[in-house]
Structure formats: C-alpha cells, structure tokens
C-alpha cells in the first residue's frame, strides 16, 4: 500500500510460485514446494520497499518472479501498467531496460572471464543506448566514476577487485541500461560493515539522482530499516505484515515481526533482554502448516489458527498485518529495537 497520491510503478497481486517435486525413474510430480504462497504488494516511483524474512521465506523468489527471471505459477505483475507476465520475449526485452537487479554474492555475480568494460558495456550495445565502441567505453568510464571506481579499471578482470569494488561493478552493470526500478537482492549482506555503509550510501545517492525505485530484499533488519520507506515482512511464502518503516519498528503488530525484531542483536551492551523465544525451526515449505503458517512457533497460537490462513487486514494507515489475534499482541513484550526506534522518531 503505497502513499495516497503516489504513482504505483510496480504492482504485484497474488503472486505464487510452486516448484513441483518429481520422483521416480520416469519422473512424476509427487508434491510441491511452496516457495511463494500468495504475495501482493506495490512499489511507487522513487520509493524503496524493504522485503525481509529469514532464509527460505521466499523473498528472493519474489524478487526474481517480479523480473520474470523465474516464471511465476500464478498471480499478476504489472510494471508501469504493462502486464509483465503476458509480454512476449521481444516485448520483455524492452522492459528489461527499465527493471534491473543487483545480487548478493560479489563473487558469483560477475563473469570471471569478462573485463569490466564487457560486463558493464555489453548491455548498452544490446539496447542500442550507445552505438560505437568508443562511446561504450566512454559511457562505462563515466559509470565507473559514478559508482566510486577509478575509470582506469575498465580493462580489469573481476578477480582483481575486492568484494566492495565488485559490488560497485554489479551496480554499474544494472545502471548501464538506465533503469527506473532495481531489485536489490541482499545487495550488502556479504560485505564488511565499513564497506556495507559505503554501498548503502551509494544506493541512496543513486536513488535520488536517477529517481530509482528499489525492492530491497534483505534479512538484516537494521539495514532494511536504514534504506526503506516501507517494509513487508515475509514468513514461509506469505507477507505477514506490511507498514511504513517507522510504523513497523515502533509498533510491530504481528507476533512474528515482534519476535524477529526482538532477536536482532543490538549494539547496546548489558541491556535488559526482551526476548520472545520462538520454538524450533521454520517448517518445511513442502508441507507448510495449515491455516496460519506461523502458528507452530507462535506464542499466541490457538486452535483457531489452524483453520484458515488469516488475511492481511488494515490496522492503521498503510499498516497491514495477517493475524487473527492482533488484539492480543501486547501479551508479547515490546522489542528493544522498537523502543530505540520510538526514541529515534521522536
């Protein structure tokens, strides 16, 4: 739910992705891995939506489905009004210029056999952004400088760079086609903290300058909080809560969000712990629990929770949560992160 009046750039409705499990000598579908159950959200122009959750919650799959790098099983994705899932491959190519992706792993995200010039420049020529070889090199040099790299690095290979520098090259590659929307898939998770701060600042500057919208996928809540306007929290293939960033941190309404926030290690020593212990592990997406997927670990769960999956209901302006016990949320302690966030927003 984007701010009233803002123009939605990306609208995702009821997105689903199942992976069939095949078994046998002559493979036969025996079940499904439910990577994404039913996910709807939208991203406005020049906005950052943070998508958080633990490993296996489906956040990366959502990011790839949005760009149609993975074909979703169901639902719809509209970009600037166009139905992304209905486009032919030729039409899709045109749209690729407008939507890009930045990856987590600074090592596997660059082809080890391509120079920086090739990595960043190839797509410019593909889309006819610049024509001549010289113009491509010129444009690549400019981009390198813009992402904070020396323009003389243009003929170097990935192995000659540090993790942070590689991440900058990955950003330059995405920017090469002048997109309006970028999926940042754990874009700073693999970096040292001092480098992570550099990249976060770079992403913010680029957003302002180039009027970019981000879908910022991460598991690190303090990073997501830093960069996002709004945050959606995923658990086992579903969004369980969505709110403006300050709102989500100050008053988390879903028990999972509260547990997640209370689990963040916060660099304030010897504070009172407000831990909400979650029992056990995330269940398997092959056989998710009936009803609310979180009920097996939820401290507030009752028998009712097994009956039906709770819908996302609006509990405040732009704040939605999917839980039938929203009224009992205050039985759980307020996470320390929330009290910090409240202080900060005051």
């Amino acid at each position: 739910m984007i701010k009233p009046g803002a123009r939605p750039l990306l609208e995702v409705a009821n997105l689903q992705k199942f992976y069939p499990i095949r078994k046998g000598l002559i493979p036969r579908v025996v079940g499904n891995v439910q990577a994404v159950g039913d996910v709807s959200f939208s991203v406005a122009e020049q906005e950052t939506l943070g998508l958080v959750g633990e490993s296996g919650c489906g956040k990366t799959t959502v990011g790839r489905c949005v760009l149609r790098l993975i074909e979703p099983t169901g639902g719809s994705v509209r970009f600037d009004g166009a139905d992304v899932l209905a486009l032919s491959s030729g039409e899709l190519r045109g749209l690729r210029r407008r939507m890009q992706i930045i990856f987590q792993d600074p090592y596997s995200s660059l082809n080890p056999r391509h120079t920086v010039a090739e990595t960043v420049g190839d797509a410019m020529r593909l889309h006819g952004i610049v024509k001549s070889r010289a113009a491509v090199r010129d444009r690549v040099s400019q981009l390198l400088e813009r992402v904070g790299l020396n323009r003389n690095y243009i003929n170097r290979y990935p192995h000659e760079f540090s993790g942070g520098q590689r991440q900058r090259i990955g950003i330059a590659r995405a920017l090469a086609v002048e997109p309006e929307f970028i999926v940042c898939d754990e874009a700073v998770s693999a970096l040292d903290v001092s480098i992570q701060a550099q990249i976060l600042n770079l992403l913010s500057e680029l957003q302002r300058e180039m009027k970019l919208a981000y879908l910022f996928i991460a598991h690190d809540l303090s990073v997501v909080r830093h960069i996002s306007d709004r945050i959606a929290v995923m658990y086992l293939g579903h969004i369980v809560e969505e709110a403006g960033t300050d709102d989500l941190f100050a008053s988390p309404a879903h028990p999972y969000t509260r547990a997640l926030l209370s689990a963040i290690p916060i660099p304030v020593p010897k504070r009172a712990r407000t831990n909400i212990p979650l029992e056990g592990d995330v269940p398997s997406p092959i056989d998710p629990p009936s009803g609310c997927h979180f009920r097996t670990r939820c401290p507030l769960a009752t028998a009712e929770c097994a009956e039906a999956r709770p819908p996302l209901v609006e509990i405040g302006p732009g704040h939605r949560a999917a839980c039938i016990h929203l009224d009992r949320i205050d039985e759980l302690p307020m996470p320390f992160a929330s009290s910090l966030a409240r202080e900060g927003s005051r």
Binding site: R96, F103, Q104, S109, A123, A176
Partner: peptide, 13 residues
Amino acid sequence: EQEYVIAAQALGF
C-alpha cells in the same frame, strides 16, 4: 545458476 548468468538474462540478452 551463477548470478552473472541471471544478470545477463535480466539485461535482456
């Protein structure tokens, strides 16, 4: 499955 291959796909190659 390498991310640079997915990146190339995302760039429209």
